[in-house]
Amino acid sequence: MAQGSKDRSSAQKVLRIGFWLTDAFDFYALASALEPLRVANETAGETVCEWQMLSLQGAPLRASNGVTMATQALDQAQPFDVLMHLTCVGPHGARGLIRELLARNQRDLAAPHTQADARRLH
C-alpha cells in the first residue's frame, strides 16, 4: 500500500506559477505569494509548486523597497498553469501611494471648510 501512495504522489502534477513583475513591483506582495508555495513544498516533502520570475524584457527589476530581482523574459518562460501580475501601485510603488494618500489627507485638512462643515464639527 505504501508503494501505491508513493506512485500516486510522484504522478501528482506540479503547479507551475509565473510571477510577471514590472518595475517598482511590491516586494511584500511577492513574498506573501511565495511563502505559502514554499511551505507547501516543505510540507509535502517534494516539489508540488514551482515558480518563475518574469518580465517583458527579462532584465533585473527593482522592487518598491529597492531589492533587485532577476527575471526571465515572458516570451522565454517555461509553461505555467497560473500567471500572476505584480506591478507598482503608484509612481514609486506602495510608498508613492502612501505619500499621495497622506498628501491628499493634509490638503483636505487644510482646505477651508464650509459653514455646514463648521457646524458639524462643533
Rank of each mutant, 00 (worst) to 15 (best):
Q78K: 05
L37N: 13
A63R: 01
P36N: 04
D117G: 07
Q12M: 14
L30K: 08
R104L: 06
C49V: 13
T22D: 09
L101V: 04
L109M: 10
T43G: 00
A24D: 00
D81G: 01
C88N: 12
C88D: 04
R119I: 15
A70Q: 05
S9Y: 15
I17W: 01
L30R: 09
L102G: 12
D75T: 12
L109G: 02
L102D: 09
G66Q: 01
L34T: 02
Q78Y: 02
A29K: 10
Y28W: 12
F19K: 00
R104V: 00
T114R: 05
V48D: 04
M69S: 05
G4Q: 14
A31R: 13
A40I: 02
L101S: 05
G90E: 02
G66S: 00
D23G: 06
A116N: 06
L54I: 14
P36E: 01
G45I: 07
L86Y: 00
A2S: 10
H85E: 11
Q115G: 11
A118C: 08
G66V: 05
G90Y: 08
M69C: 09
Q78S: 09
P79K: 03
L61W: 11
R119A: 10
L34W: 07
F80A: 08
I17L: 04
A63I: 04
W20M: 03
A118L: 11
P91H: 13
L74D: 03
E100Q: 09
I98A: 14
H113K: 06
R16C: 01
R62D: 10
A11Y: 07
R107F: 05
Q106R: 09
L97R: 03
L101P: 03
V39G: 02
Q52T: 14
D108V: 06
L54N: 02
T22C: 08
Q106H: 05
Q78D: 14
I98M: 10
Y28A: 07
S5P: 10
P112C: 00
A33V: 03
T43N: 03
